[in-house]
């Protein structure tokens, strides 16, 4: 009995379709186990979880802020863009009302109303930006730092829509044209990619503190949130601290002493 051409083609067709479907299925299952492994790791309380505490009472003058901001921006080649609604900034100052929009602001003390607050990426424990990035250009390290790969980023700006803190920057202008000086130790960026604070992971890996913490001269604290003996845990437990927008459960790791 010979197979008809038509039947033969049918069998081949089923075979090819079946293979493609099972490949796809295998791929999804493979990804699933990777995700499960990732969740397992996140539940691990023994590892390092970096956090920052900013003593907002200690920052008094314009120079106090400038020292911190300049230390970061110079080291990381952050361009100085004059267009304020399209600028690039990794760490900057804003008012209480804008930093904590869900907090009561009408009847608080005049001093707090006027006080400035340093804002930066919160390195959320459950970061929405990482959840939405289609190419894993932004991802969370095991020590909790939310990273940004500026060479993989496709510039879709989804992470900026997802970030509830306005901490992400898109390069609306050619960044290299707005650098007054350049640090050859750190890469510069191109048009159309997103960047943000990276908690100075490169310095932590060398056993140093982030640039901003170093430049603050004791007004900012940095350490391991999982270590009950760490300095950050001590200052958090001894003071009244706030985090930005706790109600949306992103679990920020930048704390503000009020």
């Amino acid at each position: 009995m010979s197979i008809k051409r038509r039947d033969f083609l049918k069998i081949v067709g089923y075979g090819v379709t079946g293979t493609i479907l099972s490949l796809g299925g295998g791929f999804i299952i493979g990804k699933g186990s990777e995700i499960l492994a990732m969740i397992d790791k996140q539940g691990d309380k023994k590892g390092v979880k970096w956090a920052m505490v900013i003593d907002t009472r200690a920052f008094k003058t314009e120079e106090d802020f400038e020292a911190v901001i300049q230390a970061c921006h110079r080291a990381h080649n952050v361009p100085n863009i004059p267009d304020k609604i399209r600028e690039v900034k990794w760490i900057w100052v804003d008012t209480f009302e804008r930093a904590f929009p869900t907090a009561e602001t009408e009847y608080i003390s005049e001093e707090i109303k006027k006080r400035k607050f340093l804002l930066l990426c919160n390195h959320c424990d459950d970061p929405p930006c990482v959840r939405v990035c289609p190419v894993q250009a932004t991802f969370k390290r095991e020590d909790g730092i939310v990273m940004q790969d500026m060479h993989r980023c496709i510039g879709c700006k989804f992470c900026m829509a997802a970030c509830p803190y306005g901490s992400r920057n898109y390069n609306f202008y050619p960044p290299r044209e707005y650098l007054s000086s350049m640090n050859p130790e750190f890469p510069t960026r191109t048009l159309g990619v997103v960047e943000k604070c990276i908690f100075c992971y490169h310095r932590l890996d060398e056993g140093k503190m982030p640039y901003c913490v170093e430049a603050s001269q004791g007004k900012m604290f940095f350490g391991n949130l999982n270590d009950p003996e760490s300095e950050v845990r001590k200052v958090i437990s001894e003071n009244i601290v706030l985090v930005r927008k706790p109600e949306i459960s992103t679990k920020p790791k930048v704390f503000y002493i009020i």
Partner: peptide, 29 residues
């Protein structure tokens, strides 16, 4: 409409190169 807003259009195939099921853009594609 989505493609033209990409800041780095030459890199869009990263979406297929690093498929990310937790991103809705991947599923939209």
């Amino acid at each position: 409409s989505v493609f033209v807003v990409m800041g780095q259009p030459t890199r869009v195939f990263n979406v297929l190169l690093y498929p990310t099921p937790n991103s809705l853009i991947f599923w939209d594609l």
